[in-house]
């Protein structure tokens, strides 16, 4: 299986360990991820400012993948949502495709509507499959309790995701965690949003949203949060200390990207998965495993 990996804006600069571990794990599981250096921003951040621009940015990225005859595998949930939405729109709405092609033509590009988009974790869940993943596990992580943060755009709006998991009762991440031998922690605020999208508009509210989940997860005695989106990572990783400082609380909740969790279970060393490069260094966790 071969797909174009779409890194988006944040991952290649701020979440290198996510990219590194995803590529490492993918290689082991027979998923070849191809870099397309010309990819730009997916378009999501400008959707609320200028719809047409967002759609055209997304369409250009789709066109780049189509030139190479590849479907897209994303690492960021927001990229997943806008690229999926636009790919589906263009595949079914001929008028929009025509108009889009006219604009792409000005850039010397074309698009015929063939590219499909899937989040990396959804590829693991649906295409690689839990069975294969379980078989690849060499070092079950049964000493860890891991709370999954699904985030929003991985599952919603559900109508663009073929109902592969239910946004009101999601289970894919928990099952993927369980496949590594770790204990998937259930918690009340599991479905809630990280608040990242309004960080620049109302920091107080955004951080409060993140905090509600940090509290909940900490209280459930989780060893780490399982993340699949760099946007959410900003809230729980980079901003974890900031949230704590404002409250005079010291959170020490490591965040792990799912491919890091899986990689550890597959017996890959923490160095190769970049664990120490994560925004919260999971020292205790690494000690426990080695």
């Amino acid at each position: 299986m071969k797909m174009a990996v779409f890194l988006g804006c944040t991952v290649p600069v701020r979440n290198l360990s996510y990219e590194l571990s995803a590529k490492r794990v993918a290689g082991e599981l027979g998923l070849e991820l191809v870099d397309i250096p010309d990819f730009s921003c997916c378009g999501y951040p400008v959707k609320s400012v200028h719809h047409e621009t967002a759609y055209l940015l997304a369409a250009r990225n789709l066109a780049l993948a189509e030139e190479r005859g590849l479907d897209i595998c994303t690492l960021c949930s927001a990229c997943t949502s806008v690229l999926t939405e636009v790919s589906r729109e263009l595949a079914t709405n001929e008028i929009l495709l025509d108009e889009t092609c006219k604009s792409l033509g000005m850039l010397g590009r074309q698009y015929s509507g063939k590219v499909k988009v899937k989040h990396f974790v959804r590829v693991l869940y649906e295409d690689i499959g839990l069975g294969t993943i379980e078989k690849a596990v060499k070092r079950p992580l049964d000493m860890f309790r891991i709370a999954s943060h699904y985030g929003c755009h991985y599952l919603k709006p559900s109508k663009i995701y073929d109902g592969f998991d239910h946004p009101e009762a999601p289970e894919s991440l928990d099952r993927l965690v369980a496949a590594t031998g770790a204990f998937p922690v259930d918690y009340r605020t599991k479905k809630d949003c990280c608040g990242g999208a309004i960080l620049g508009v109302d920091e107080e509210t955004a951080l409060s949203m993140a905090r509600a989940k940090l509290d909940d997860i900490s209280n459930r005695g989780a060893d780490a949060i399982n993340l699949i989106c760099p946007f959410c990572s900003v809230m729980y990783g980079a901003n974890q200390r900031k949230i704590g400082a404002g409250l005079n609380v010291k959170y020490d909740l490591p965040i792990l990207y799912y491919p890091q969790i899986l990689g550890l279970a597959m017996g890959i060393s923490h160095e190769e998965l970049g664990l120490m490069q994560n925004p919260i260094r999971p020292r205790a966790l690494i000690a426990k495993i080695s």
Partner: peptide, 15 residues
């Protein structure tokens, strides 16, 4: 109004 910029686009209501 600045309130229209406060939607976190979590899509819970959309669902």
């Amino acid at each position: 109004g600045d309130f229209i910029w406060l939607c976190a686009t979590c899509y819970t209501c959309h669902e």
